[in-house]
Write a protein that binds this DNA or RNA. Sequence first.
DNA 1: AATGAATGAGCATTCATTCAT
DNA 2: TATGAATGAATGCTCATTCAT
Lengths: 207, 207, 207, 207
Amino acid sequence: MARRLTARGQRRRQELLEVAARLFATQGYHPTSVADVVEGLGVGKGVFYWYFSSKEELFRQILADAQRDLRRAQRQAIADEPDPVRRIEGGIRAAISWLDANRHLFVLLEFARTEERFAGLIRQGEDQAVADALPHVKAGMDAGLIRREDPLVVAHAILGVTDHLARALVLDHGRPADDVADAAVAICLGGILDAATARRRLGVGGG
Amino acid sequence: MARRLTARGQRRRQELLEVAARLFATQGYHPTSVADVVEGLGVGKGVFYWYFSSKEELFRQILADAQRDLRRAQRQAIADEPDPVRRIEGGIRAAISWLDANRHLFVLLEFARTEERFAGLIRQGEDQAVADALPHVKAGMDAGLIRREDPLVVAHAILGVTDHLARALVLDHGRPADDVADAAVAICLGGILDAATARRRLGVGGG
Amino acid sequence: MARRLTARGQRRRQELLEVAARLFATQGYHPTSVADVVEGLGVGKGVFYWYFSSKEELFRQILADAQRDLRRAQRQAIADEPDPVRRIEGGIRAAISWLDANRHLFVLLEFARTEERFAGLIRQGEDQAVADALPHVKAGMDAGLIRREDPLVVAHAILGVTDHLARALVLDHGRPADDVADAAVAICLGGILDAATARRRLGVGGG
Amino acid sequence: MARRLTARGQRRRQELLEVAARLFATQGYHPTSVADVVEGLGVGKGVFYWYFSSKEELFRQILADAQRDLRRAQRQAIADEPDPVRRIEGGIRAAISWLDANRHLFVLLEFARTEERFAGLIRQGEDQAVADALPHVKAGMDAGLIRREDPLVVAHAILGVTDHLARALVLDHGRPADDVADAAVAICLGGILDAATARRRLGVGGG
DNA sequence: AATGAATGAGCATTCATTCAT
DNA sequence: TATGAATGAATGCTCATTCAT
């Protein structure tokens, strides 16, 4: 591809991406045919292959766009925050908010992970997300705000809690995104133990 | 179906389930054809339909078996543990250990969530897992061991950390399951904040 | 085949013929599988191939039995009737009555005519039926009771009216077989014209 | 379906209908595969499903077209005939002539009656044919030309004689359509009895 | 840029028949 | 005699992709 597109062409391409993302999310990638996609736009099949060389390429594009978009939202949310823990918090909130607003993309990212030819893309994106969080985690540790543990593990744990709560509570059980974000932040930061218990059980030195 | 099977038949059926799970995990559910499955066993295509009424039914069976199996492993792991926090810990460790030993099933459970006709099964299983954890969380709160928050959210958070760390660190990055289990337990229980910070930031009353 | 069968075997064979005829009539010959047939009897598939060498052979047998049975019913009905017109009448009535009592076989005979490999059997049976009627028609003509026309055509016409009225009125529209038989006889024998008209139009010499 | 077709598309669709009808008639509906049909045209399999949503839909179309066509032929044949008996005669002749010219469709109509999912279509068509004939029969009775009997039965009897003679004599025994039409008319109108006998036996009042 | 038409390999599923026990 | 299991060719149908216009 890498076709030079007119403004109208750009719009068409975008429409295809959106309709396809919507359909892939609703029916699944495989069960959605290229015919479904172009039908959803009321255009002929040639249109599809004018803008994308294959169904797979289209899907990759959707995935890449989604990842770029989420990352951008997180960056913007924490741009001017000096406190590392607040930056982490901001990242969590931005993620949940974005996932709430782009529910249909969430399931696509999940699906992509399950098929080897797309999984690489997702693993890359996840590594990127972890790499994005890492400096804040380390800064928090250096500032004595965050308990010293493997920062990579910590970053992954944050990702895990955030994603899971967003999906399970916001998407599946319909809870308000803000409330879930509060809970995600609380649990990520403070764990679930009572402070005294934590001190005893985990040997956490009290301040 | 609900066919009466001889011992030999039972074995065949099991073989089909295993080969199919393996292939679905490797290539994806859709890209794997029934022909692939029977070829993997070196039998005729009719065999498949003697034991399963459809590819979909077979997949559901794989999912149900996997969920049952994981749950059983967790139950056994914590059977005689009186301490609720230790029960939670045991559940986390059992889950990571099972996922480590059944990597191929993990991706199937994830895929299933992305296609509406299977998603129900997965949501049910997840609700079950949460329901299983809930009593321990509540008991922990009642015993003053766990900070009082919405127990459902807490249970979901534990699930999220556990699943994510298992996948990202054990499966994707090849870390030893035991180490990851340690980390998962530590983070679930203690969060990531330094205790003093936690006290200040979250208003957690000190012991 | 031509297997020597025990009394029990004879019964089994008959059961298979009946269940199959029933199913073929309801669902059609092709849409009915051998599996359906044996399932309908609650026996294994081997049973079928013990008694019949193929699905096709079974169907031929059903057809042959039906034709033999109908013919026998007609013969008995007119055995001692000296008047040729009354013999024709008796044949018509016997046919309609048999078709009424064996509705499911009717559709099988019709179907068989539409597939070349069975059509011969049916044509033979029909030729036989015509041959059976022919002597009575001729006798009627010789006795001056029946208008002189090609007896073969006359015989076929009787067959056509009888079969059609039986199917259309008795089977499809649920009219009583006896009433339909009356009508069939009246029309076969007297046509539909008013006598005076007939005389004028057909040049039929009045008695 | 309900696809908008270009002129070329219309032609293809018609070709498919014709080839399929031919094959269905020769080999039977079930024994003819979609592959046979497209092979007969030398096109790919997709072509079939571009024009028809299923083999069943195609067959229904063939049946509907055939019924429409026969009906049209009959209507045209009797359009300007004032005499009701002559209208009936014209209908009989038109039917036999059409069946002679469209032999292959005849067997399809017969087959369709034997499978429940198509039988409705045929019964409808037959009811229509009877309804078409009914006014002429009634007019004939009112004009004193036709003996008073249940007009529905009379109409069905005409249908029965016509169809049967056409099939048995024209198609199966190769008699000239015109001769058979003469015979069908004679028998339908005048029955088979000698006029005097008819008077005596049926109590038909003489002119 | 866009369309309707076509391609044909591939898929899930069926089923008459056979076979080991 | 009978059964459960197995066979594998065949079927109706789908769909990513291509092509002529």
